[in-house]
């Protein structure tokens, strides 16, 4: 008898065209210009980054565009130990939820250049961009975040987001 077959690979694959819509398209075009754009809600004044064109809490369109800084505060994080084909970071690495200065909601990215046991809530970070000629309308234009060297942000400044 042949060697027993103990397992099979059963890939689940979905290939599709993603259209981010007008607001997020403007955000992505901003990224290609080294600029992070959000949109402010006219009622609650929260700044959404990336913008989706509306405020889900107030149910109103968000039209005013605001530029936020490429520095921010780590509000939560997770150590990733499982490989994924489309992620090029060396394992293990820290995925972060980063609240950019001027933004009202955090977004996900990766922090590098810091030992994993020193990644913490409140850590101040700044974006490391790809070379200017490589800038493109994709979040991959921000290679990663790295510690900015500033003192940690106080808990009160981001408690709403962690």
């Amino acid at each position: 008898m042949a060697d027993p077959v103990k397992s099979i690979v059963t890939p689940i694959r979905l290939e599709y065209d993603y259209t981010p819509g007008r607001a997020t398209s403007r955000f992505l075009r901003g990224i290609a210009r080294h600029c992070i754009l959000g949109q402010e809600c006219p009622k609650c004044h929260k700044v959404y980054v990336p913008p989706r064109g509306s405020c889900p809490a107030c149910a109103v369109p968000t039209e005013r565009e605001v530029e936020v800084r490429d520095t921010g505060t780590v509000v939560t994080f997770s150590i990733i130990r499982v490989p994924s084909e489309n992620i090029h970071f060396e394992l293990p690495y820290a995925a972060i939820s980063v609240l950019l200065d001027g933004a009202g909601i955090p977004f996900f990215h990766v922090v590098q250049d810091i030992p994993l046991d020193q990644v913490r809530m409140g850590l101040r970070v700044r974006a490391r961009w790809v070379a200017t000629e490589a800038l493109a309308p994709t979040i991959a234009s921000i290679e990663c975040f790295v510690p900015s060297g500033e003192p940690d942000a106080p808990w009160e400044s981001f408690r709403e987001h962690s």
Partner: peptide, 9 residues
């Protein structure tokens, strides 16, 4: 608006 091919597998 932008459009990109995404593959989820």
């Amino acid at each position: 608006t932008l459009r990109a091919r995404h593959v989820l597998e």
